[in-house]
Design a binder for these strands. Sequence first.
DNA 1: CTGAAAGCGCTTACAG
DNA 2: CTGAAAGCGCTTACAG
Lengths: 334, 334
Amino acid sequence: MAVTMNDVARVAGVSLKTVSNVLNDYEFIRPATKQRVQDAIAELGYEANLTARSLRSGKTSMLGLVLSDLSAPYYAELAAKLMKAASRHGYRVLVEQSDADPSVELGTLQGTFRQLTDGLLFTPLAIEADQIAARSGTKPVVLLGEHIVDPRFDLVTMKNEEAAAALTAHLLAAGRRRIAVIGARPDESAGSAGLRLNGYRKALEEAGMAFDAGLVAPAEWRRDAGAAAVAGLLDAGVEFDAVFGLNDVLALGALHELLIRGVAVPSEVAVAGFDDIDEARFASPSLTTVSPGMDEIAERSIGLLLDRLAGRETAKAGIHVAAGFELKIRESAP
Amino acid sequence: MAVTMNDVARVAGVSLKTVSNVLNDYEFIRPATKQRVQDAIAELGYEANLTARSLRSGKTSMLGLVLSDLSAPYYAELAAKLMKAASRHGYRVLVEQSDADPSVELGTLQGTFRQLTDGLLFTPLAIEADQIAARSGTKPVVLLGEHIVDPRFDLVTMKNEEAAAALTAHLLAAGRRRIAVIGARPDESAGSAGLRLNGYRKALEEAGMAFDAGLVAPAEWRRDAGAAAVAGLLDAGVEFDAVFGLNDVLALGALHELLIRGVAVPSEVAVAGFDDIDEARFASPSLTTVSPGMDEIAERSIGLLLDRLAGRETAKAGIHVAAGFELKIRESAP
DNA sequence: CTGAAAGCGCTTACAG
DNA sequence: CTGAAAGCGCTTACAG
């Protein structure tokens, strides 16, 4: 049997409540009493039982993180940073992989996962704002990404459109005229894919260049799909002198396919991505990309969620944060 | 206020215990009673409170996973697979990043993290077997990796030595004579680095070739360190016609550095790694590596831990499992 | 097959 | 500043 607060109270010669007060940093405790309790805790090696505390207080000191797939480098790096940020504030992070399955996403908003966590960092991919609103209950939710941008919900995101435009402008300034885009999602205009594509179009427009839909290839956001998309363009005889992968793994898959086919990068075709995952720096050639401010996203989203939990942030409307971005110009598109 | 078992009992017209029996699939319940309870559950939208259940039963339905850094691709992919495997058995996985810090590793063996989880999948990197034995308590622990191989503990690992030898033999068979090794850890002979280096030495021996310590470069297991290690060898004028990165990110960092320096891969220098992370297939050139059987590792480690939890496995001595491996011969070292 | 009672280890009003 | 009591929502012996 583990040591309980009762044992501590007995050894310290005080009541249960006094032990609880010491444990919870209650202000008005006589220093001598506090010391006696702390000595007893040390002597017995007492450790608070989090489950009992949770049952009574309704708080778990865990935050939920919902994302599609932890093995995607962007999510892996983000999760690692979020966990570190949460840990600095005394919270743990419980991760749920949704696989972009709507029923899994809905499931995390209620039931066990919700019970186990005090608040949620939620990357919606398959469900809509009203579905979240219908079951968001009283625990705070901070949305990540851009699938849902809604004034009702807190949101931490990145400057997708602006950054994609800046990257496209860079390619244009370098003399590229036919920039293929891979990773489009024709079925959704609101998400990251849509916003980044918008940025691309705006940059073209600003440069007085026509948009050519034949340069836009849809693809799932995976390496192999990026490779296949570029293969498709090449096989179809589409001409292009640059490829903008809407994220890094797409761009890296494309880069791989181009090199296999004997297409020189960047001399014949420049390649650029989005996310600046660790791997981008070490690709060969190294990948030009957008650093979307992942550190800032991690800090701000944890900060906002904890502010909501602690009642430090009480705005009725959702707070929207967009982290700053930075262009990383590397060998693949100098 | 959430719906409780009491509410269900009232609506169904039965006692608390009967509701509990239905919830816990107790065998001997009259079908009609069971139906009444299930109807009440559906009507009220009742969901069991996991915290209360945990407090009373001492079980949390969570497994702990301790690893150094979730953003390392190998760990990210492994964690994703472990979570999926656990989920199929009704368990969640709570991840703790240790950063290879001994005090963090020790901390996960007791205290809150231990309380929150029914069993542990533990990747020790900085602590030793006796330290684990001293605080392993009654909850099961399955070790991952090879830092600690001890008959007292269950262990799921890979065939490091055998696989490294097979990979080295492949390089030798392809005519490579001076194979540099990067990522050695001179301070530890037992871990993955030591075992893989052993495999390398055995393959050399088998081929009747001398071991040259000048070809072995220590490095942390990161991309940038792999690049720096190769740069060091080149700058020191060490001659080599192949590089064996003791894991994939080391090999990919090395590959990058070689290409930057104008060294042709594989014609001048072949490059091989270990792990077969997703990225290896899509590197340019694609990376020859060892697939260490990650699916098998995930399945077996979850399976073994759950067998211990359920009392299906009662062996007094630790059970050691080594997953099968496969050589993935790709462009970087054909 | 089902019920009434106790209790897991805390925190939370309520007193004093 | 500290104490005695109640109760969070379950499961677990114990009866019957």
